[in-house]
């Protein structure tokens, strides 16, 4: 179901409220996670023509789920005003060498926030 966007002009009061309180992107619901902390996952190889929060440089790379941050609205569909499609967000650790090859430092790592829909089981 499409997301309605208000056409109303934002008042100074509304601006103040957003600045002070922010916009909550977290969703309070018990959607089960697709992945568990400690699990190896692969970032999907996909090249959507529409908006996505899955960076190209990790597509196809294998990482480790370090933390489950909880359930948030899914920007890939929210950005198109399609649906909120709430799902889990994880901190996924990719070894620098997994992403960039042997020239990268063996000690270093990239931590990328990825959503259930960005990931698949290894």
């Amino acid at each position: 179901m499409a997301i309605e966007t208000s056409n109303e002009c934002m008042s100074a009061e509304a601006a103040r409220a957003i600045l002070d309180n922010g916009l909550n992107c977290r969703v309070n619901c018990d959607i089960p996670p697709q992945f568990q902390v400690g699990e190896l996952v692969r970032a999907k190889v996909t090249h959507p023509k529409t908006y996505t929060r899955l960076p190209r440089y990790v597509r196809g790379k294998v990482g480790n789920i370090m933390k489950d941050y909880g359930v948030y609205v899914f920007p890939d569909t929210v950005g198109q005003r399609l649906s909120t499609k709430p799902q889990h967000v994880y901190s996924v650790r990719f070894a620098a060498q997994e992403v960039w090859g042997k020239e990268a430092s063996a000690n270093d790592a990239l931590y990328v926030d990825l959503f259930d829909d960005h990931l698949e089981k290894v």
Partner: peptide, 15 residues
């Protein structure tokens, strides 16, 4: 130093 791990955090979600 090489023995220190560098962690780069890419802010790809709403965190």
């Amino acid at each position: 130093p090489e023995n220190v791990e560098v962690r780069v955090w890419d802010s790809t979600s709403d965190l």
